[in-house]
């Protein structure tokens, strides 16, 4: 079908103009498919099954990514680990984005003491290094997957507050928002239908970037022993366990690390692509 030259081009069109966006999307789609396989248990081996007979084997046709010191299949464990990482980071970012965006928009729109309070509180959270704060929260709460996501959510909420609040300050002074007040719209309607849709672009980009940071944080926590617990697989934990045997079995360290790298790079590239697609000033061609 030929496209109508007068019809305005949609966001998807502009997204597809960005090379990094396409590459990122492909990497991400790959990782999501991999995780779905793990969810349904479509794995060549049981990720928890130990078999000392096959311990420390290099990549082969049976064990695609080789095996670790207990003879567990690294390919199956990597896929399962990917699933865990994505589950934790997606739920963490969902919580952080929901709370952060709500607070950010309210604080930008209402101003006064509420704004002061929210901004100061998020400054306090910002003052701590992300991984340290997450560590502290996880060690207090416990380390099941939802507690880990909660800890990561707390750490990333202030970023969403900032990202949402800034544009609201601009948009609420726009004439079209003044007009909604002149015509007697309720504050809730103004916020939901006239301000939120006009500040989504930076939020969407922030979601992609935060997902990649959340995956790094989750891996970091697991690496330090405070995230996913053995014998369950997690990318960070696998890297941690592979340290001692890395000298003899490079594959045990390489494949989980490669997975982390691919998903983080993929999400960052998606973030770039979204930024290019959503920013009218960058739509040069």
């Amino acid at each position: 079908m030929k496209r109508d030259p007068l019809k305005p081009k949609g966001g998807f069109y502009y997204y597809m103009q960005s090379t990094s966006g396409i590459v990122g999307a492909l990497l991400l789609i790959f990782m999501v498919i991999v995780s779905i396989c793990a969810v349904f248990g479509w794995l060549p081996h049981d990720p928890l099954e130990q078999n000392v007979e096959f311990a420390m084997q290099g990549p082969s046709t049976t064990f695609w990514f080789g095996t670790d010191e207990f003879g567990r299949d690294i390919f199956s464990r990597s896929l399962d680990g990917m699933r865990r990482s994505l589950t934790v980071s997606v739920s963490a970012v969902s919580i952080a984005a929901t709370i952060g965006v709500t607070l950010g928009i309210l604080s930008g729109y209402l101003g006064r003491w509420f704004d002061q309070l929210v901004v100061r509180l998020s400054d306090v959270i910002f003052a701590f290094p992300a991984i340290l704060l997450a560590l502290a929260i996880v060690s207090t709460l416990g380390n099941s997957w939802y507690q880990t996501s909660l800890a990561i959510a707390v750490v990333y909420t202030p970023i969403f507050i900032r990202v949402a609040r800034g544009p609201v300050l601009t948009v609420k002074e726009m004439d079209y928002v003044k007009v909604t007040r002149i015509l007697g719209f309720s504050s809730l309607r103004i916020l939901r239908k006239h301000i939120l849709p006009n500040v989504t672009a930076p939020i969407v980009v922030q979601v992609a970037l935060s997902l990649s940071w959340a995956i790094l944080t989750e891996s970091g926590l697991s690496f330090l022993g405070l995230g996913t617990q053995p014998p369950n697989a997690s990318l960070g934990l696998m890297v941690s366990e592979a340290q001692s045997i890395a000298a003899f079995a490079w594959w045990a360290l390489f494949f989980p690390s490669a997975f982390i790298t691919i998903v983080v790079v993929g999400l960052n590239l998606v973030g770039d692509g979204l930024r290019d697609a959503l920013d009218p000033a960058r739509r040069s061609s």
Binding site: M174, D175, Y176, K178, V179, T180, R181, I182, L183, G184, F185, H194, P197, N198
Partner: peptide
């Protein structure tokens, strides 16, 4: 506002929600 007393705004170029 908007029902009994209404107002036409100065600048129509920016007074409508673009999205």
């Amino acid at each position: 506002r908007g029902s009994d007393i209404s107002m036409v705004y100065q600048d129509p170029m920016t007074a409508l929600n673009p999205v």
